[in-house]
């Protein structure tokens, strides 16, 4: 681990974790954490104050059985906040990004089936939800937004090492004190 300048061919994981300068991909990764993380926290926080409305929004999709919609409507907002906080903090980045991406995939499926079936609902992504007038649906935009967020999440699943991640500090290997085992250098 001597401060040899890392060659570009060096494995990316080590160079990303190291204190040496961050590459462009590292900053992209950071953006992928903060962007979707922030969106998730905001979306969850807006819904958590009115969970009954959240249940109605879930029911608006007309997929889940009546009672299961209650469970999902209650669990989704806090889960969004937790996953969002993990992403922003950079803790369990890969898992948080995976769960966040799966959320987005589920939302995309839900919105798409609503569109295809001719339902006229608001996605309820940031509170609200339920039926709206036919000319007030924004399915295309909603799907586009969720697909974008999902792409950012997938980036992190593939390449979870990012700058300023709590997990780097928290889970760093305790350095083995080299003085204790003097090498013949």
């Amino acid at each position: 681990m001597s401060p040899v300048t890392p060659t570009p061919a060096a494995d990316t994981e080590a160079s990303a974790a190291g204190p040496a300068g961050h590459g462009v991909l590292d900053w992209v990764g950071l953006a992928c954490r903060l962007g979707p993380g922030g969106v998730l926290v905001v979306a969850g926080a807006l819904k958590i104050s009115d969970l009954e409305q959240s249940v109605l929004a879930v029911r608006g999709y007309q997929i889940l059985p009546y009672d299961l919609a209650v469970v999902v409507g209650h669990a989704l907002p806090p889960l969004e906040i937790i996953v969002g906080v993990l992403l922003i903090a950079g803790l369990f980045t890969r898992w948080a990004a995976l769960i966040g991406s799966l959320f987005m995939a589920a939302f995309i499926i839900g919105i798409t089936q609503a569109w295809v079936r001719g339902l006229t609902i608001d996605c309820g992504c940031f509170g609200g939800g339920g039926q709206v007038a036919a000319n007030q649906t924004k399915y295309g935009l909603e799907i586009l937004r969720d697909a974008g967020l999902m792409a950012l999440g997938v980036f992190l699943v593939i390449r979870p090492h990012t700058p300023f991640a709590v997990e780097d500090r928290l889970f760093a290997l305790a350095p083995v004190p080299t003085d204790e085992f003097p090498d013949n250098e």
């Binding site: 803790l91 889970f171 760093a172 290997l173 305790a174 083995v176 204790e180 085992f181």
Partner: peptide, 24 residues
């Protein structure tokens, strides 16, 4: 020396795993 170092490293890895599990 190499042995002791390996032991210390293994111990550090175990501590890290513990930390990860506890945090999770």
């Amino acid at each position: 020396r190499a042995q002791m170092r390996a032991q210390a490293e293994a111990e550090a890895r175990r501590a890290r795993t513990r930390k990860i599990v506890i945090t999770a």
